[in-house]
Amino acid sequence: MSESPMRVAVVSPLDVVAVGLAAMLEQHPDQVAVVELSVGFGADDPDVILYDAIGLHDGDGADLEHYVKETSAAVLVVSQDLRPDLASRALARGADGFFSLGVDDEQLLRAVLTATTVDDDGAVLDAGDALAVGHRLGQDVGLTPREIDVLTLITQGLSNQEIAEQSYLSINSVKTYIRSAYRRIGVTSRSQAVVWCLQHGFAPSPGL
């Protein structure tokens, strides 16, 4: 008996993106089934959620965090090449990987089919050169998820106290994460850290 098709949901505020991705996936009914997100999730969670990063442009990302934390689905971010900052923000919030809207039919299928395949370290396996599945901000220098969160908020202009309040950390913990992150990226000041982050794909403050 053959395996059931992988269940995939597409989340985008743009109909052209949602319809376009769904149409590409529906060309492979033996491997992929496009489904709607149910209100309650749980047992009906899809295997993969494709999340359009443009949703972070106008929103606060609460929906993305819900998909990451409250569903069992692998969450892949779909990003326009002209807005890498949005993909960076999505990855910092815990998305499993991302790929460009410029992918072709076969690349999209490969990204979806490998989204739930993990290596021995629990990281999503790379789906190929055209995709960035499995890539995370700061991966090349060994930043931890918490260090990434802190650097993201620093880049967006938050003070240590504001970071502590938003992340539910003590001010001393924030300072510890900042020091360890600075060591990993090779900087000694906040301004240097912001420059490094902007050069490595972190989302800038709206005022920058």
Results as ranks from 00 to 15, higher is better:
Ser2Met: 15
Ser2Leu: 15
Pro5His: 11
Met6Trp: 03
Val8Thr: 00
Val10Gln: 05
Val10His: 09
Ser12Ala: 13
Pro13Lys: 04
Pro13Gln: 07
Leu14Cys: 04
Asp15Pro: 15
Ala22His: 02
Met24Lys: 05
Glu26His: 08
Glu26Ala: 11
Asp30Ser: 11
Val32Ile: 04
Val34Ser: 01
Val35Arg: 02
Glu36Trp: 12
Phe41Lys: 04
Phe41Val: 05
Ala43His: 03
Ala43Ser: 04
Ile49Tyr: 01
Ile49His: 01
Ile54Ser: 04
Leu56Asp: 00
His57Thr: 08
His57Met: 12
Ala62Asp: 08
Asp63Thr: 14
Leu64Ile: 09
Leu64Gln: 03
Glu65Gly: 01
Glu65Tyr: 03
Thr71Arg: 07
Ala73Val: 00
Val78Trp: 09
Leu82Met: 11
Arg83Cys: 03
Pro84Thr: 02
Leu86His: 06
Ala87Gln: 02
Ala87His: 00
Ala90Glu: 05
Ala90Tyr: 06
Ala90Lys: 01
Leu91Arg: 04
Ala92Gly: 14
Arg93Tyr: 15
Arg93Leu: 15
Arg93Glu: 08
Gly94Asn: 06
Ala95Gln: 02
Phe98Ser: 05
Val103Phe: 06
Asp104Ile: 03
Asp104Phe: 09
Ala111Asn: 11
Val112Asn: 00
Val112Thr: 03
Thr117Cys: 10
Ala123Arg: 15
Asp126Val: 09
Gly128Trp: 08
Ala130Leu: 14
Ala132Arg: 05
Arg136Asn: 07
Leu137Phe: 10
Gly138Met: 07
Gly138Gln: 04
Gln139Asp: 11
Glu147Trp: 03
Glu147Gln: 07
Glu147Asn: 02
Ile148His: 00
Asp149Ser: 10
Ile154His: 06
Leu158Val: 05
Ile163Ser: 00
Glu165Ile: 14
Ser167Lys: 08
Leu169Ser: 04
Ser170Ile: 11
Ser170Arg: 10
Ser170Phe: 13
Ser173Asp: 03
Ser173Arg: 07
Ser180Gly: 02
Ala181Arg: 03
Ala181Thr: 08
Tyr182Trp: 13
Arg183Asn: 12
Ser191Val: 10
Ala193Gln: 05
Cys197Gly: 03
Cys197Ser: 08
Leu198Gln: 08
Gln199Arg: 15
Gln199Phe: 04
His200Gln: 12
Pro204Thr: 01
Pro204Met: 00
Gly207Thr: 15
Leu208Arg: 14
Leu208Met: 09
